[in-house]
Amino acid sequence: MKTLRLLHRWSGGLIGLLLAVLGLTGALLVHEDAFLRATVPHARDVQVQDTATLAAATTRIFARQDRPRSVVLATPRLGLHKLNYKGERGAYAAQDGTIVVAWTSNWARPEVWLFDLHHHLFNGDAGEVVGGIAALAGLGFVVTGLILWWPTRRMFHLRPWPRMARRAAIVHHHRDLGALVAPLLILSLTTGAAMNLKWVSNALRAPFSPPAAMEAASAPPKIKGGKLAKAPDWRGMIGAAQARYPGAEVRVISLPAKPGGLIAIRLRQRAEWLPNGRTMAWFDPADGRMVAARDAQALPLGSRIANLDYPLHAAKVGGLPYRLVMTASGLTLALLGTLAVATFWGNPTGSLKRRKRAAA
């Protein structure tokens, strides 16, 4: 137990601040849509999903000389389309295709740089890996904390803040609060690690589906498309996708990433929790003919379970009550991480000195 306590204390002192940053930014990002609704024109508009309106907006957006690579369409909670360009450029557009806000750097939009910090630590793919490793370390931190708390469980007190600014009171509060929110922290950290680290996701889903089968089922079709038409038949393509999956919500429309690529339309069926869904329809960019489709409900079980990671992690299901629960989880992680760092670096060798004195 002494070794475990020492390991827990040192791990908290070393990664606590990083976990605090991830927790705080995650808690804020849960309310991104509410922030946009309060600050950006047309963000409160009612979502429109009829073929004619979607086609008109798509035509207007992609007809621009400086067209985006993809468009994420408005949702029931956010009446804006998001335009994604190469690099850090982006824009929000009303549902008629009119651009209302545009930016050329992540720093120009608070919700954009906040997401970059939370998901990439401002360091692209490398930051994503570091964040995933931090989540795994955080899981170890939670598990060891529960083991250390168990002998003191009869002294449990529910307090949002330590009763006094002394190390003993802070440690007692840290253990009790950590034990209380442990299930939520395990959920957040596990889903975060699975999204950032592919091998973690594969390991968690391997009992349900072989990783090779999941990867093959999620791969894009190996079909070569023609040259992008000057005036693609967006109405025909969107209508064909809606006809293929009746009742599905059209979520993302993407141009070919390179010559020979396909136009992709991503949809969300009613049974899907993932906000943008995983149901796909692909079209030849030359003539708008549907050449392939993929029903997310027919994916291997492991893939369908993996598709629950993001909606559970980012509180995209469950409405306001679940958003508040995950907000509390993120803020608690921020508090626990901050206090762990403060108490450790305030006296990093104190416990070792006390043990030596006791043994002398």
Rank of each mutant, 00 (worst) to 15 (best):
T332I: 03
L117I: 06
L180A: 15
K224R: 09
A93W: 05
R154S: 14
A217C: 04
N106K: 14
Q297V: 12
I147Y: 08
G337F: 04
H172V: 15
R357P: 02
A286H: 04
G192K: 03
V48I: 14
T152F: 09
R109K: 09
R304K: 06
H120D: 10
E215A: 09
A126N: 04
V21Y: 09
V341K: 13
I99N: 12
L320S: 10
A243R: 07
P76Y: 13
A231M: 03
T75N: 00
L267E: 10
H313P: 10
G87P: 04
L7Y: 05
G261N: 14
L7T: 14
L158T: 15
Y310C: 11
N307S: 11
T58W: 08
G247F: 06
A298G: 02
A91M: 11
S303P: 09
E111Q: 09
G226S: 10
F141N: 06
R294E: 12
I265G: 05
L7I: 15
L324K: 05
A340C: 15
S351P: 04
Q242L: 09
A74S: 07
P348K: 01
P275V: 11
L339Y: 01
P220K: 07
H42F: 12
R163F: 02
K86H: 10
G350P: 01
S188W: 00
A126R: 13
N276G: 14
R175I: 05
D309F: 09
M237V: 09
L158K: 04
A229F: 06
E272S: 02
R294W: 11
A212M: 03
L177F: 12
L54Q: 12
P275E: 15
L267D: 07
Y322M: 02
L18Y: 10
W10C: 00
N106F: 07
A360M: 08
G318S: 09
R304V: 04
G132C: 13
K356S: 07
I305S: 13
L333D: 00
T39A: 05
L136M: 03
R268E: 13
V112F: 13
A257Q: 01
G302K: 00
V30Y: 06
G261H: 02
L333A: 15
R294N: 05
P207A: 14
F208G: 15
G90A: 05
R44A: 00
G90Y: 02
A257P: 06
A298D: 11
I265T: 08
L189D: 08
K230S: 08
V40L: 01
A126I: 13
A93C: 03
T53V: 08
H173F: 12
Q65E: 15
V71L: 08
S209P: 09
R323H: 11
